[in-house]
Structure formats: C-alpha cells, structure tokens
C-alpha cells in the first residue's frame, strides 16, 4: 500500500538551545501553526504565552490544600486536647479552644504547611503524569539532560503541511526531527 503518503501525527523538533526553541516557537505562531507542548530540562522564561499555555489554577489548589490542613488540625486539636481529654499544661485554663489558642498556633501552622506542600506535590505529579505506573509523556529522555523538544501535533494543524512544518523546524535551528 505504498500510495498513501507517509503522514505522521506528531512531529518533534529537537533543539540544542532554549533560546532557539523560543524563537522557533514565535515563528510557528506567526505561521499560525500551534505548538502542542515543549519539553525542557528547565523552565524556559516567557514560553507559556508563545505556545498558548494559560496560567494554571495550581495556586487555588494550594489555598484549598492549606485550608484543609488548617481545618483538620483545628478538629484534631479540639478533639484531643479540649473535648476528649483536657490536659493541664502550665496551669493554664484548658477547657476552651480560645483560651489555649497561642499554644495551638504552631501545630495549626505546621499542619497547614504540611498539607499544602504535600497536596501540591501530589497534584503536580498527577497533572504531569509522573507518578509510578503512568506512562511517561516525555518523548525523548534527552530532554531531561541537554535537549529542548518542541511537539507539534498535526491533528491540531489540519491545514498545515508536513513538509512546511519540517522545513520551518530546520530553518529555525532544530538539530534533529523525530516523528510518531
């Protein structure tokens, strides 16, 4: 069946330099070809608006995780030290939460930070599919070392031609092109 033209669905352009990749992404945007994703060993400053990635709502998640940690700690302290078994520490009044509040602040603080930090880490790993058992989305392990990879999804760019994309990638300095 050799009459079907070879038509890969995803094209990867591999760059040696992050700045080349940034300039290349700008060229693609100018040519109305959308870049699906970029894989890089470190964050490339200013790439998000170029490839059309919006700010994530992770900060809202952080607040929610922190608030959860705070509430859980309030519940825990109230049950343990006020409701179930009031403990006399230093002869202070120990039958209300408010009267002992200063002693609880370090616990509340630590619990808030603990939940926010762990919640954020797990959310990050989930969003990026990095937990054990997930298939890695990274197309080439060298992108964790010294290569910068731009992913162009041909199904997003139905009016762009394969040759055009490859030509632009080569023109803008891609050292290697992979297809899938």
């Amino acid at each position: 069946m050799s009459e079907v033209k070879y038509n890969p669905s995803i094209i990867y352009g591999i760059f040696d330099d992050d700045d080349d990749l940034l300039q290349s992404a700008k060229v693609f945007r100018a040519n109305r070809i959308s870049v699906a994703n970029v894989y890089s060993p470190f964050p490339i400053h200013g790439i998000d608006p170029v490839i059309g990635h919006k700010r994530t709502n992770v900060s809202v998640a952080a607040f929610v995780f922190g608030a959860t940690g705070f509430s859980l700690a309030v519940l825990m302290i109230w049950y343990m030290l006020i409701s179930d078994w009031p403990i006399n520490v230093g002869g202070k009044p120990n039958w209300t939460f408010a009267a002992n509040f200063p002693a609880f602040v370090p616990v509340l603080f630590e619990s808030t930070v603990f939940c926010a930090a762990h919640g954020m880490s797990i959310t990050y790993l989930l969003l990026n599919r990095l937990l054990p058992g997930f298939n890695p989305r990274n197309p080439d392990p060298r992108s964790t070392d010294d290569k910068f990879i731009m992913e162009i999804n041909m199904s997003d760019n139905w009016d762009a031609k394969y040759d055009e994309v490859v030509y632009l990638l080569k023109q803008t300095g891609a050292s290697e092109i992979k297809e899938r």
């Binding site: 230093g90 200063p102 002693a103 370090p106």
Partner: peptide, 12 residues
C-alpha cells in the same frame, strides 16, 4: 510578634 508573645505566654 507571635514568637515573642508565645514563649512569654507559655512560660508565664
């Protein structure tokens, strides 16, 4: 502020 306050409040 709180670190100064809490130690004093706790030690009494």
């Amino acid at each position: 502020w709180f670190s100064q306050f809490m130690l004093i409040w706790y030690a009494n």
